[in-house]
Amino acid sequence: MHIAWNWGIFFQPAPFGDTTYLGWLWSGFLMTIFLSISAGVIAFIVGSFFGILRTLPNRFFSIIGTAYVEIFRNIPLIIHLFVWVYVIPEILPESMKEWLFDLEPSFFIFLMATIALGLFTGARICEQLRTAIQSLPAGQKNAGIALGLTLRQIYLYILLPNAYRRVLPPLTSEMLNMVKNSAVASTIGIVELSKQASQLLEHASTPYESFIAVTIGYIIINICVMKTMQYIEKRTRLPGSLGGK
């Protein structure tokens, strides 16, 4: 199979958007990063909240946490995105609906994609954190109780600092998954990296070059995520633990 490489394609003007093909890729790259960061923040907060909820000695709280996780684990991401864009606005009260539809359409879609992707990833983080908290030795909690600490204090000062350290490695892979999952948002009209790739395939007729360029884009994001997480892991690693100082 012979391929006539044409890397110059990226510097040619794109058919629309008043930019080059490289400009298309760059804007998709930025969109993937924006979407991932904002969804990541939601995922971390919501995941932490429900993860802690699921470990509390209260049946009601743990049922709520379980319901959240099961709903997001058993329904494909694309359907969550469709629900947030097409269904949720329909069932909201009139005033909120108007507010949403008054938004810039592209911002509306970005907002909904962020929420859907954030909640979806949050369900995974919730499970990781719950497992981490439950895998801490029971004696740690007992030692806190024996010292007279309250449950809130035990979580805040003893359980969570250790659970978050344990959760860092799986958190890294959840974040990487989330970056990849952000590509699914192209189905509801977010023009991120993979959407730009398919536009490139359509207009530029240089499939191999386009594919390689986009793959490199994802690799760059992956490396950034991994380096950031490695840095956090290194900074929070305890002296005397495996690999510590």
């Binding site: 990849k180 590509a183 699914v184 993979s194 395939l201 594919f211 986009v214």
Partner: peptide
């Protein structure tokens, strides 16, 4: 590692493009 870096959506598009060439070859 390559497949684990690329979003599934991309892989699907890519194969949609690639498979016909190979198959028709």
């Amino acid at each position: 590692n390559t497949f684990r870096t690329i979003p599934l959506v991309m892989v699907l598009l890519w194969f949609y493009l690639l498979v016909p060439q190979i198959l028709s070859n």
